[in-house]
Design a protein around this nucleic acid. Structure first.
Length: 945
RNA sequence: GGGCGAAUAGCUCAGUUGGGAGAGCGUCUGCCUUACAAGCAGAGGGUCGGGGGUUCGAACCCCUCUUCGCCCA
């Protein structure tokens, strides 16, 4: 074995071997356990969030596989409608100078598929590098033929059940991409803007209480004035009660609009009068509904002003009564230009009262980067009210459990206030809506045009045209757990692996994905999609910032695994940017944070780091220093294995039987192993990967390496040691190491496999791979509290001696003598049990036991319980140094004594606290006082020299 | 404005029914001791955001304030 851990050499070799051997496939034996991957975007690449999530899933799957379950981890990708379409559009614009319209729908889609073939592989390659034990033979894609069947089936059944309908509604419209987008794709940005106060002239000679012939309306969006259909005031606002029911003459369009009263209006916002534009604002839309106001749409799909507005009654019918003309100077004017013109026209007319600065939130399309426009369009919707009820119940009754539990509240609060879900998108890339229209707009929903004609008994000559729109990507994602298992066919896989065992996901998509999966899956399979939802935090950079390309703080997990030079990293972060002006800043930041580039840490270290960060919090700050620590941990494990192999290969490790003697240290480490196994089992159950990884780290480094390996040395180096003891120690060394490897395998698959191959035969284990070995489970009869207590005593003695050595600058190579004073019978028996180890590890020359009253030379003193460990000072220790050390110890003790004393002299504590707590405190106080006295005596006698 | 979450060592974070404040990294000191300098040994470092309350006892429970983050309006 190499002297240092070299991750590269083992990683590629073992992944290929596992995959070729088909170890990732379900075993077909045992209880089923399945995880469906949250499908990444097909044209994207694996970012830190994915890598984090995938590490957790892989650890769970490997753990369950080793527990003997019939495990399925199914992977796949999402077609990601908008993102993918945009990407390919940009690509063909750059490469061929063409738009998608130049190509036409079919040719464009052909291009998307080509790109999918090319880029889809990059994510799977990255996943493989992460060591994920995914059954690749079952990889799915949301645009696959089979999956589309499920999507169609769901759409048609929902339509036939009247749970899907088509209608004109206000949606988030992206004027650049020309499609409706979901709330998830809208990013609200805080901006400083203006609040314009306009005068709206009162009609019919009405006046305000203070005699004005106008009222003042404040708005952040003057351009929508052209679409106003009312002015609203709060019903309790005394300034305006007399005006409710009166009318305004809207300037520019001369529209007569009513003044209405609605609780929605906050009296102390602006003037207390709010313009109501139901076709261009979500709140106004709701107000309009309540007051049966007409919807006046003034914008086209580019968000420019129409020549004639489109007016609908609140029931959706076309309104023919109102004047639909718009002033000519606004025709085809972009919304922001229209805003300027409106302001100047109002100002010219003396109707601009004032302009205030105003902080507002502006919705931006996260893909297009343009301001999103609420727009009235024809869209398809899912009526979610009936679907939501069972979905809420499933979480309430515990069929689905969220971990951590607090996320259930988030889920409930959203589910109890659900809006109908807009599922149509004006895109080409996606699942085309299986609906056809005749010339008069009747809708026919079926799998194919032919089926539509049969289903609705239409004549062969009736011209039908399929809906151009596609479905929201989340619509298909909602079927992910069962659609990928062959539904609507009742396949064996569906029966075996559905419901899936756990969903691992970030809290940011609970609404958009998790909730919708629950609703659809219950509706179509009468099963929950998963029994547990493990919700993890989001990976952020070292400053807690979200990682994003535009911030330039993204990290590619593969760069942490393989390492990257500074210049390459800078190029990677600043290349192909949407906003090239940020490149300079990003370059500076990158050079500051990674002056040396990034070292290669290997997959196992990266995985272990992710797991150690997986606590219950919402933010996960990724810290390179921490990863370095865990890379060192890998190295530690590697070198521990080297030590074990050096001392066991070619030796009798008890595989062939023979008499075995277990030392105290052997019994202790075996006992501690059982405790560690118990802890790890519990942490797995509770999804506390942070506690799990630290329990493992602590056991391997601080107990197995720091103590057990050291304690094995005096045995192995003792030429007089009996064969049975040597055999016992070697057997324990390899057996515990072998168990550690299996324990750690789900978290660190590569290093454990590489080492296991050499260690397993020495521990009498057979098998081609560690990943199919049984997971270590604690055996209670191996717990040994006595051995644990004895070793703790040894550690305490060692610590006392090392402390004296350290503080007195006695080098580790210098052998010293110690004397023991006031040793109890138990101390003495422990001394005998540990004598060889103690002499060797503490580098002792002689151990002298002082009889009661026996004179001791001047010494530095350490205490273990009531036993004093004396290190003679002659020639070694400076008097003042020892006095200073004693003073420090005495000071510590004094503080603790004062605290305990105070507590115990409190009558309330003694009478009300549980007896065992009081007793414990008393014993502690006694011990402290005794220790204090002993050290004080030492202090006195040393000062007297 | 409403809701949720966070605030613990210089940094990143644990802290399980309320009962002696912890880890990793960083810092300081001494060591190339025959697995490991990606290491070993030792040490220092905290008014648990502020205030109030409940309790014999609060990092933990309650109230309140401050700061930060997220979601919603």
């Amino acid at each position: 074995m190499d002297k240092t851990y070299q991750p590269h050499e083992i990683e590629s070799f073992w992944y290929e071997k596992w995959e070729q051997s088909n170890y990732f496939a379900p075993s077909g034996k045992g209880d089923p356990y399945s995880i469906m991957i949250p499908p990444p975007n097909v044209t994207g690449s694996l970012h830190m969030g994915h890598a984090f999530q995938d590490t957790i899933m892989d650890s769970l799957i490997r753990h369950q596989r080793m527990l003997g379950k019939n495990t399925l981890w199914q992977s796949g990708m999402d077609h990601a409608g908008i993102a993918t379409q945009m990407l390919v559009e940009r690509k063909i614009a750059n490469e061929e100078g063409k738009s998608r319209h130049d190509l036409g729908r079919d040719a464009f889609i052909e291009k998307v598929w080509e790109w999918k073939e090319e880029s889809g592989g990059s994510i799977t390659r990255q996943l493989r590098r992460m060591g994920t034990s995914i059954d690749w033979s079952r990889e799915r894609f949301t645009m696959d033929e089979g999956f589309y069947k499920a999507v169609q089936e769901v759409f048609i059944r929902l339509y036939d059940d009247k749970l899907i309908y088509r209608g004109k509604r206000l949606v988030n419209w992206d004027p650049k991409l020309h499609t409706a987008i979901s709330d998830l794709e809208v990013e609200n940005k805080d901006l400083s803007g203006n609040l314009w106060h306009f005068r709206y002239p009162l009609a019919d000679g009405a006046t305000t209480a203070d005699g004005k012939d106008y009222i003042v309306v404040a708005t952040t969006r003057p351009e929508t004035i052209l679409g106003d259909s009312a002015v609203a005031v709060n019903p309790k606002d005394p300034r305006y009660t007399s005006l409710v029911g009166k009318f305004i003459t809207l300037p520019l369009v001369d529209r007569r609009i009513p003044i209405i009263a609605d609780d929605y209006v906050e009296a102390d916002f602006g003037s207390g009068c709010v313009k109501i534009t139901p076709a261009h604002d979500f709140n106004d839309y709701a107000v309009g509904k309540r007051h049966h106001l007409p919807l006046i749409n003034i914008l086209n799909h580019d968000a420019a002003i129409l020549t004639r507005c489109e007016i609908y009654n609140s029931d959706g019918s076309v309104n023919g009564d109102l004047d639909d003309r718009l002033p000519e100077q606004y025709h085809h004017l972009d919304r922001f230009d229209a805003r300027k013109l409106i302001i100047s026209e109002f100002e010219a007319a003396g109707l601009l009262e004032k302009v205030d600065d105003h902080a507002l939130k502006v919705p931006y399309g996260d893909r297009s980067g343009v301001v999103i426009e609420p727009l009235l369009t024809d869209q398809w919707f899912v009526a979610v009210a009936d679907l939501a009820k069972p979905a809420i119940a499933a979480v309430e009754n515990g069929d689905i459990q969220f971990v951590p539990k607090q996320y259930e509240n988030m889920y409930f609060s959203w589910m109890r206030d659900l809006q109908d879900w807009c599922i149509s998108r004006q895109l080409w890339w996606g699942h085309r809506i299986p609906a056809w229209y005749d010339d008069v707009g009747n809708i026919y929903v079926a799998r194919t045009e032919l089926e539509a004609r049969e289903k609705y008994q239409l004549g062969h000559d009736l011209p039908l045209k399929q809906d151009d729109d596609v479905l929201d990507t989340w619509f298909s994602s909602a079927l992910w757990t069962f659609g990928t298992l062959g539904w609507p066919e009742q396949t064996e896989d569906l029966k075996t692996f559905h419901p899936s065992s756990v969903l691992v996901t970030g809290f940011d998509i609970i609404f958009f994905w998790v909730a919708r999966m629950i609703m659809f899956t219950l509706k179509f399979t009468d099963e929950v999609p998963f029994k547990t939802v493990y919700v993890h935090g989001l990976v952020r950079d070292q400053d807690g910032q979200k990682m994003s390309k535009s911030k330039g703080n993204v990290l590619d997990p593969l760069d942490l695994i393989d390492g990257i030079k500074l210049e390459e990293l800078v190029d990677k972060r600043t290349g192909n940017m949407m906003q090239p002006q940020l490149a300079k800043k990003i370059e500076q930041q990158t050079r500051k944070h990674f002056p040396e580039g990034i070292d290669a840490y290997g997959t196992d270290a990266l995985r272990f780091t992710f797991l150690s960060l997986a606590s219950t919090g919402r933010d996960i700050k990724f810290d390179m220093n921490r990863m370095e620590g865990y890379r060192n941990f890998c190295n530690k494990l590697w070198n521990a294995a080297r030590y074990v192999l050096m001392n066991t290969e070619e030796h009798d490790c008890g595989v062939e039987g023979g008499e075995v003697e277990l030392t105290l240290a052997d019994r202790w480490i075996i006992s501690r192993l059982q405790e560690t196994e118990q802890q790890i089992a519990r942490h797995f159950e509770e999804y506390r990967f942070d506690l799990l990884s630290s329990a493992l780290y602590e056991f391997v480094w601080n107990e197995y390496c720091d103590w057990y390996l050291e304690l094995s040395k005096p045995v192995l180096w003792d030429e007089q040691a009996p064969t049975a003891r040597l055999r016992g120690t070697r057997r324990t060394l390899v057996r515990v190491l072998e168990a550690i490897l299996r324990l750690a395998h789900p978290m660190m698959p590569y290093i454990t496999e590489a080492i296991w191959q050499r260690v397993a035969p020495l521990a009498g284990k057979q098998g081609d791979t560690i990943m199919l070995q049984p997971y270590p489970l604690a055996e209670e009869h191996k717990l040994d509290p006595q051995a644990t207590a004895d070793i703790e005593w040894l550690k305490a003695v060692m610590l006392a001696i090392r402390n004296i050595r350290g503080e007195m600058n006695i080098g580790p190579g210098k052998a010293i003598n110690i004397l023991l004073r006031n040793a109890s019978a138990e101390d003495l028996s422990r001394l005998e049990a540990n004598r060889t180890s103690l002499v060797k590890l503490a580098k002792l020359d002689q151990i002298t036991i002082l009889a009661e009253g026996e004179e001791a030379p001047m010494s530095a003193t350490g205490l273990v319980g009531s036993m004093e460990i004396l290190v003679p000072m002659a020639g070694l220790i400076d008097k003042d140094a020892e006095l200073a050390r004693l003073a420090k110890e005495l000071d510590k003790l004094q503080k603790e004594i004062a605290r305990l004393d105070g507590k115990l002299s409190n009558a309330g504590f003694v009478s009300k606290a549980p007896a065992d707590v009081v007793e414990k405190e008393r014993a502690k106080l006694t011990e402290m006082r005794e220790a204090f006295t002993r050290l004080q005596d030492q202090q006195t006698s040393i000062s007297a020299i």
